[in-house]
Amino acid sequence: MAEYVRNGVRIDDTFAEAFGMRATRLLVTADHPRWAHAAAASACGFATSVIGCGCEAGVEAELDPAATPDGRPGVALLLFAVSREALAEQVERRVGQCLLTCPTTAVYAGIEGEDRIPLGRRLRYFGDGHQRSKVVDGRRLWRIPVMEGEFLIEDDTAAVRAIGGGNLLILARTRESALLAAESAVAAARAGRGAILPFPGGVVRSGSKVGARRYPKLGASTNDAFCPSLRGSTDSALEPQVGCVLELVFDALTEADMQGAMRAALAAICARGGAGGVLRVSAGNYGGKLGKYHFHLRDILPEQDP
């Protein structure tokens, strides 16, 4: 495969293949940042992949009190699903089980759009007839009485078109060097807005291929071409020096957000340089046959800055 070099890191001249998704942004506020984070951790738990979790979710940003609808500290969450219906179902479940239940929280729609999905519209029935509606600044809010006081939630939120499945593969000499590169890349990508990295710490170690050779019923199985320990027993894509491969997976609201997050991550990896133990960066794709969006690494971060 053709490649180019940046600061001693070889970058495959390939592309990450990404897919259309539906997404929403929720603003979660609380009396104290620790409760906003507790709510976020719960709501975004078990949300690494739509394959097994129903949605992919993560904290987009921490919000200053001045930037929230009620002047309290908060966080912005992004949730992605394969369809509008799946997104609506996941939003209802996660808000009902993880945000309604968390002390002091309130939930607001954090994104504009014409396609609306329920947020508090059905959850309000938890109030058993004691719920009250308030229209504040043109937005309908539901006040649901709870033992702690009231849970405040906006009536609906927007489901917008978004992109999931952007990715980068970090091929490093050792596990330690791969982890350090991945951690710096995740930190850089998470500094921006409009994108999340939904896996633990933003990193995936178990990249997959479509289907399986030995088990026909499996939809996905280990990406043996990138498993260092299978070199010699499979058609490996790894050179002998590679001791560890980690993957970063990105979901973003727009193509620009995806490019921004991938660029920040790739730049952070390259900033560590070849001397930092990173040998090569690649990206996963299916030959361009499945995903609508192709993010070419050379376009995201060229060999040299223009």
């Binding site: 506020t29 002047g71 309130a106 308030k134 504040v136 009231e150 405040l152």
Partner: peptide
């Protein structure tokens, strides 16, 4: 006496 978050939201609206 209880806590009503919507009053904080209302306060922000009036300030705006």
């Amino acid at each position: 006496v209880a806590e009503f978050v919507w009053l904080a939201r209302l306060d922000r609206w009036l300030a705006a």
